[in-house]
Design a protein around this nucleic acid. Structure first.
Length: 522
RNA sequence: GUCCCCAUCGUCUAGCGGCCUAGGACAUCGGCCUCUCACGCCGAAAACAGGGGUUCGAGUCCCCUUGGGGACGCCA
């Protein structure tokens, strides 16, 4: 079993082999000795045969915008982990921020996940709908003495914070109401409920990625569980929901690492077992800072619109922070088979659009022509500002083999296919017009009768014919090919010219050439 | 500021104490192929942040420094 970069590996009684396993939180492992004496080999067997089915992961976005690259990777890792262990992957919409949450965002996130091929088990959980349950848990905590009412008003809090800032201290709630009797409560102030967190010692997270992380409890103050208006805070909601949803592994961005310690305190107060944590490093922009709007497009939908393939994005995201030896191009099947937590890197990766392009080019090349043409049609239509008819769609499929080698995105693919559909007479680009000088036009005119006489209109016959022509004229093939390209596509860049001619067909080709030669000498 | 995390080519990474004269991929630069563009093929340049330990031996383990990132809400 692969194991790397971990300080929290498990050694068996003999010291090896070492074993790291995701189910350690949920299952007991039985060690079986094979052989005897000092050469005995220990094998780990799982006590329960359904141990592998136990994994439950979740992706928990806030619906305050579309799905961004970082979120997509978090979702992917959770999905992969669940699928790898034949577990369950769930979706939870953290919509408790009523001001910023929108239904459009919820839809956008669903769409983006759908597009990426990340499917979830069961119905999504909406966090806001569960606030009664969160409140109930807070009351339990109050009753068990693990939480208390805090009557400090937000004004008092603000003053306290300001004073701390002015004195150059970092502010923490000082626990004013921690042990104060409720009979001291001021009139007319609704209390917030705070966790009575341990003040001494350390809270330890055994993170699957970050390893053993200890945070001094002195660093963590008594966090608010229920606001003065009775609504639950994120910290409480997450813990309750993860617990109720049976989540076994929380894989999320490492901006939550310290939160894990806080949440772990809530788990302890509740007497619940905390899930395994895996805090993955954030994705950074090209300048090494956290990916944000100013790094350009960060929304998944942008890449979709630009004509990136979901599989390519997934592959790229997968390789950001996770590796499997030297493997670069990894199919979904292999990703599911290979994915595991130990291979996640600890250092943040930068999002390199260039690399995504490379993956996309590769995935485009490996996609079959019909599928690719279907995906491209909408891009073509929008460029043409009209519908693409069946005949044109069929032509697009036929052209795919020569088109897909030359495009990094579907958008580019569409752009490169446009010469097939443009109405005559073609608009000739300036560079192409330069190619069509007097000599070139004369040659094109000379070539026309030969093309007319051709029996078969296919690449081979066309190439034979045009090559023979150039040899007879004692000129290089390029001297004929480039003018042909200019006349037939209006551009100096296109797929191989004989492919172009074959695709366009004899009538269209001759007509386009005629447009040019006649325009030059009417 | 306090706490936490991180550190191998420009970028993504391999590396789990001897297989490392540090490997792969993208990007870059040459060359070949060639009707343009692209593909493909061949080749080049390119990294263990610095300093101390530990060890027979350190990219790999420990410490410090430096640099980067993150968290410090009655946001999520």
């Amino acid at each position: 079993m692969r194991r790397k970069r971990h300080s929290s590996g498990y050694a068996d009684p003999a010291g090896q082999p070492r074993l790291r396993h995701p189910i350690r939180h949920t299952t007991t492992i039985t060690m079986i000795r094979i052989g005897s004496g000092s050469r005995a080999v220990w094998w780990a067997c799982y006590a329960a045969t359904d141990a592998f089915m136990n994994v439950v992961t979740r992706f928990a976005p806030s619906p305050t915008g579309t799905l961004h690259i970082g979120g997509a990777r978090t979702a992917l890792f959770n999905w992969l982990y669940a699928r790898h262990w034949h577990g369950t992957f769930r979706l939870r919409i953290e919509d408790t921020d009523r001001k910023r949450s929108t239904q459009e965002s919820v839809e956008a996130i669903f769409d983006a996940l759908d597009w990426l091929g990340i499917d979830w088990n069961g119905e999504p959980v909406f966090q806001f709908a569960r606030s009664a349950r969160h409140q109930e848990v807070a009351r339990t905590l109050l009753e068990s003495g693990h939480a208390y009412r805090c009557y400090m008003t937000s004004e008092e809090l603000q003053h306290s914070r300001k004073r701390a800032r002015d004195e150059g201290r970092i502010w923490r709630y000082d626990g004013t109401w921690r042990d104060r009797d409720a009979c001291n409560a001021p009139q007319g102030v609704a209390p917030a409920i705070r966790l009575k967190a341990p003040r001494e010692g350390y809270t330890v997270i055994d993170d699957h990625v970050q390893g053993h992380v200890a945070i001094a409890n002195a660093e963590l103050d008594d966090m608010v569980l229920l606001r003065a208006d009775g609504t639950p805070t994120y910290m409480l909601s997450v813990v309750v929901d993860d617990h109720d949803m049976g989540v076994t592994h929380v894989i999320r961005g490492d901006e939550h690492l310290v939160n894990a310690a806080r949440q772990s305190q809530i788990y302890q107060a509740l007497g619940w077992t905390a899930p395994g944590f895996a805090h993955i490093p954030l994705i950074h922009g090209a300048d090494g800072t956290r990916l944000s709007k100013r790094h350009g497009a960060t929304g998944v939908e942008h890449y979709r619109e630009e004509g990136y393939l979901a599989d390519a994005l997934v592959n790229h995201l997968l390789r950001l922070g996770w590796s499997h030896g030297d493997e670069e191009v990894i199919s979904r099947e292999n990703a599911v088979q290979w994915f595991d937590l130990p291979a996640i890197g600890k250092s943040p990766a930068r999002f390199d659009p260039e690399r995504l392009s490379t993956f996309n080019r590769l995935y485009i090349r490996n996609t079959d022509d019909t599928t690719l043409a279907c995906l491209t049609t909408s891009h073509v239509a929008s460029r043409l500002a009209r519908k693409v008819d069946d005949e044109e769609a069929a032509l697009l499929v036929k052209a795919m083999p020569v088109l897909k080698e030359r495009s990094k995105t579907l958008a580019e693919l569409a752009q490169n296919s446009l010469f097939l559909f443009h109405a005559r007479p073609l608009v000739i680009e300036p560079k192409a017009a330069k190619v069509l000088d007097g000599d070139a036009l004369l040659r094109l005119a000379d070539l026309v009768p030969r093309l007319n006489r051709l029996e078969a209109w296919d690449e081979t016959s066309l190439e034979l014919c045009v090559r023979a022509f150039s040899e007879e004229c004692l000129i290089s093939l390029g001297k004929v090919a480039q003018p042909l390209r200019a006349a037939l596509t209006g551009s100096t860049v296109s797929p191989p010219i004989f492919d172009v001619m074959a695709l366009l067909g004899r009538d269209e080709c001759l007509a386009r050439i005629k447009d040019i030669t006649q325009a030059a000498c009417p």
